[in-house]
Each structure stands twice: as C-alpha cells, then as structure tokens.
Design a protein around this nucleic acid. Structure first.
Lengths: 211, 211
DNA sequence: ACCTGAACACCGTTCAAGT
DNA sequence: ACCTGAACACCGTTCAAGT
C-alpha cells in the first residue's frame, strides 16, 4: 500500500467534505468521526491529517461550503420576490427550509469550534458569509424604512435573523424530544409578521408629530 | 479502599452535580468528563455509574436543577414588575443575565442529549420547566391582549421566547469567535420592543372596523 | 455493602515505515 | 512522494475484585 496518487490534494479535500455530508445526510444524529469520514472517502485516517489541520478544520470547511450554498439560495430568493416585505418573508422561509429539509447539514452549522485554530482564512470566510446574510436582511429593512438610522437597522436585522435562527433551534430540539410540536414555519411566519408590524409601527410613531 | 460510606446515595448525586457546576464555572469551555467530575467530587469514575445511568443522565439532572433556579428567578421578577409589558422586558433581561453571568451553566442547557434514555422522569421534568417558562410569557401576553385567541397567544409566546434564546446563542457564538460584538442586552431589548409593538398594533388592526 | 480501578471499545492525532 | 496503520493519550462504560 501507500503511494496511490489517485487524487490531487484538492480532490482529497473534496472527497472528505463530501463524505461528511454523506454521513449527516444518512443520519442527522450521526457523530462525525475521523475514521468514519476516512472510510467514507476510501482513505485511511492519516490522510485526513495530511490535508486538514484537524477534524475541526474539516468541519469548518464543510460549514463554509454549506453557508455559501445557503447564501446563494437566499440571493436567488431575494431577486425573485416582490418588495422588501415579501423578500424578508421569503428569506426566512428559505432558512427554515434549509433547517427542515437538511437537518444534518443545518446542525453541522452550529457545531462548536475549538479556539485552538487561530484566526484562519477559512474561519473568517465562514464568519463573513454569516455577516453577508445579515446584510441581506439589513438591505431589505432599509428599503422598508429608508429614513431610519443605519445603525438601528443593523441592530434590527441582527435581532430578527437571530430570532429566526432561535425558533429553528427550539423547534428542532423539541422535535428531538418528541414534544408537542409547534411548526417552525408557523412560528417563523408569526415572528416575522409581528416583528415587521412593530418595525413599521415604530417608524410611523417616530415620524408623527409629538403630541 | 472501597467501602467508605461517607455519603448517602443522594449526597453522592449532589456532589456530582456540584462538581459539574464547579467545572463549567471555572471554565465555560471545559469539556465535562466522567473522570473530571469524579475527581472533583472525590470519588472514582465507577461511583458515578452507581448513581447515574450515564453521563447524559447526570447532565440532564444538572439541567433540571439549573432550569428550576432560572424559573424561580423569573417568577420573582414577574411578581416584582409593574404591568405585563414591563414584566416581559424583565423576564427577557433575566434570561439574558443568566446567559451572560453564567455562560458555562447556560451552555450546559443546550447540551444535546442522546435519545438512548427513554422517556425518563427527569427528562420530562426538565422539559416541563421549559414549558412553564413559555407559559410565564404566555400569561403576560394574555394580559396585554385579553381578547385574542389563546392558541394564537401560545404561538406568539413561543416565537418570542425562542427569538430571545436565539439572540443569546448568536451573540455568544460571535463573542466566542471574537467578532464585532453586538450587545445581547441591546438586541433583546430591540426585539422585545419591536415585537410587542407589532403584537399590540396587530390587535388594534384586528379590532378596527373593516374599511 | 460500598467503592475501586483495571479492562474494553471507542475517540483524535501523530509519525515511523512501507511502496 | 504519497499513504498507511500502529501507537499514544484520551474518552464513556462495565464489572470482577478488594475491604
């Protein structure tokens, strides 16, 4: 054995990433293991460490890829919807769909990373995409209330998007524990509807003359 | 060694729970280990399995205790605030304070449990307290809009509380990655303010005559 | 009866040795 | 040069054996 040279370094990385996705797609509760990933890609454990710094590094790259896809989908959705209000609803739906249709992949995103790797390029890349997603929402909120302070809108966007994320988490967790199930889509719709009502109402109020 | 009989079964359980809390209090990122818990309580690993079914069972009991405390605090807060609107703000602040002042304990709450243990008494206990917390919020929302459908209010309460939780999670995670930090307290305040505005606005609208 | 600690089957990670 | 797989230091969990 040894010395096969079937794949380039980049191809091996791709194989590993695909193997991780295959594992979580086949069982959302599966624990990702260096050995299981290696088996899935047809190599041995050692090879993994030839190409990634460690398991966290691999998972980080998977997350980066997942976030890129999600961001891409969200951009398409943003393009194809009518008006900022509708767009925000569609963006939220897009996120819930990702969480519900690919629970394994979605859970991968909240995998706690070790701080052992310093400020990595890939680490920053993943974080930057998350930032881009926030900005997407921020842009639509700005369209809804063009006169409002941009700092305020940034806060509103973060609050709203974190809230949507929170609903997905709580719903998934109560689903896991076979609890009375509240539909994530319904909860998110309610949240966005109520939040946007409040957002617009506050605007009206601040524009109204002081009584 | 062997046969010390220093503590009763119940005392040993208490020692273990305290040991877990000590570990996460001293380092929020510490990994809870059967051996580290055992060392912290002055026993050996085996003893842990004399008193808990496994590590998850121990962590579940810790969570149950933490949730009881949190629920107690929230009840005190609910008693001492003026009016439903103020109460909801105070409840939210109470949760954020827990997450920020005791990050290790708070993170323990989102520890993913194995499904290996069936429908346990303790498991249900923890879930029931979470349910009670939702009800607390639900009660205040009902006071704000007594005429609204109770099912709708239940949904509104879950959406709001999950949203608050989500903000804490996203904030903690970006804090961990040393990202530009948005204050959780500010985000939660914005969320609650905006959400309640929307909640009241929708009520007004639905009460208003159809035009 | 109560507790221990060696043992087992797993981890992540490394690195000398094979081709 | 490329990859292997045994080795190491850890896990969670069990259970025969000590007092």
């Amino acid at each position: 054995m040894a010395r096969r040279n079937d794949h380039s370094r980049k191809q091996i990385r791709e194989l590993a990433i695909q193997a991780v996705l295959d594992v979580v797609d086949s069982d959302e509760d599966a624990t990702i293991t260096a050995r299981s990933v290696a088996k899935g890609m047809g190599y041995t454990v050692g090879t993994l460490y030839l190409v990634f710094r460690n398991l966290d590094d691999l998972l980080l790259q998977v997350n980066s890829k997942l976030l890129q896809h999600l961001y891409g989908d969200m951009n398409v959705v943003a393009q194809n919807s009518e008006g900022p209000r509708d767009t925000i609803f569609e963006l939220a739906k897009c996120y819930v769909s990702f969480a519900e249709d690919h629970p394994g992949r979605w859970q991968l995103l909240s995998h706690r990373r070790d701080n052992t790797l310093g400020h990595d390029a890939v680490e920053n890349e993943a974080d930057n995409i998350v930032e881009d997603i926030f900005v997407l929402v921020q842009t639509e909120l700005t369209r809804l209330a063009p006169t409002r302070d941009s700092k305020e809108i940034a806060i509103a966007a973060r609050a709203l998007w974190s809230a949507i994320h929170g609903i997905c988490i709580v719903t998934a967790s109560s689903h896991l524990r076979r609890r009375a199930h509240y539909d994530a889509r319904l909860l998110v719709h309610t949240l966005v509807h109520t939040y946007l009502s409040g957002f617009m109402f506050d605007k009206i109020e601040s524009l109204a003359p002081r009584s």
